[in-house]
Write a protein that binds this DNA or RNA. Structure first.
Lengths: 198, 198
DNA sequence: TTTTTCTTTCAATCATTTCTGAAAACATGG
DNA sequence: CCATGTTTTCAGAAATGATTGAAAGAAAAA
């Protein structure tokens, strides 16, 4: 026999739950900024918890070899999935990060690099362009526009720093802070006089 | 003369900066989960700081009337842009929220409603499916899968609560916390023994 | 080296999303 | 009521993005 100890296959109920999970995760693809299939591959690897090879994935998700290969490659780029090799087996296997917080740290890290950093760079340039126009002469419009950009820059600089915190090794600290913050019953800081729920 | 006090038009430099801003913001569209044009319309309204009518926007962005109308409607749905009317003018004008933090609170609010809430609902169902399969008998696979979903659920419940905080009127508090957190030189909480950068 | 097994690439195809433009709907003033 | 100015809708066109499949590339085994 070729498979002396075949991996135990999940019961039907389990597999059905997996399928739901994969579908749901696939729908969120847009939110993570990745393609549907990529998300589905990740979902499969995460929920099954085991290392799978390209063919396993192709079969289970009914996608082409090319698609599977490209999706896996992209997931590797995102540092969300890693390669593993099995002794005496030529194929490559893939497994997903199992720590949920680590997973989201990786996602945040990538999105910071791909989106926030370039945005911030552009915003700085735009601020300089506007500031130049504002130079000296009291141009109402220029001054106001400059302020609007300034505000935007300030926001993203805060976001950037927060992101770095979350992503860095001390990110565990932020994780802790987030958990606390989400659990605390209520708190108020500084200014609020009358607060009304919208 | 029909326009006795025409609005002062921005200098070329200013307008060029606006164009850059619009383009950059348009590229971020994917990140906010809206279409490119929608983002550009918002960018234009934000950076110009003034209320504009549909034709102004069509002309400036070179888009069709239909597109402008649909984008504006969507921006209104997101509570990111509001209608204003000018006395003695039949047209409708639109202006963007100018408070950057309020803008992002609105975005977070929408995304929570559209994405996180449904996801969490599905996740709960999936957890129950898996839990049922795990019922009683000590099925290794089921137990492990159940735990993976449990972790995911826990993460999104934390996210959900954090989001509610940020979005709620007391969100100003979180804004404050975020600003502090991003400025603080360094801090450590709880466990960290040896932390290493990856 | 040659064969075998597995992986990657990419042009063509397919699917989805976005945009247009013209028509319909709506509103206001005469 | 009609005329006029304005906004919305929506079927089809265009653009963009995802997927396939077959061929080329790599790497190990024979």
């Amino acid at each position: 026999m070729t498979t002396p100890a075949p991996k135990p296959s999940p019961s039907d109920a389990l597999r059905e739950a997996q399928d739901r999970f994969i579908a749901v995760w696939g729908q969120m693809a847009g939110a993570w900024g990745i393609s549907r299939t990529m998300a589905e591959v990740h979902a499969l690897l995460y929920i099954s918890g085991e290392a799978m090879c390209t063919d396993d994935i192709m079969d289970r998700l009914e996608i082409s070899r090319g698609n599977a290969s490209m999706s896996l490659r992209a997931l590797l780029d995102w540092n969300i999935v890693s390669r593993v090799t099995k002794r005496g087996d030529r194929k490559e296997y893939f497994e997903a990060e199992q720590d949920v917080w680590a997973l989201f740290r990786a996602i945040v890290r990538e999105r910071m690099n791909r989106e926030v950093d370039p945005l911030l760079a552009s915003l700085h340039e735009i601020r300089d362009m506007t500031a130049k126009a504002d130079k000296g002469k009291g141009d109402e419009l220029a001054a106001a526009q400059r302020e609007r950009i300034e505000n935007m820059v300030a926001f993203f600089e805060t976001l950037e720093k927060l992101g770095q915190r979350f992503v860095s090794p001390s990110g565990k600290g932020l994780q802790f802070a987030a958990t606390m913050l989400s659990k605390m019953p209520e708190f108020s800081l500084g200014g609020g006089s009358k607060e009304d729920a919208r």
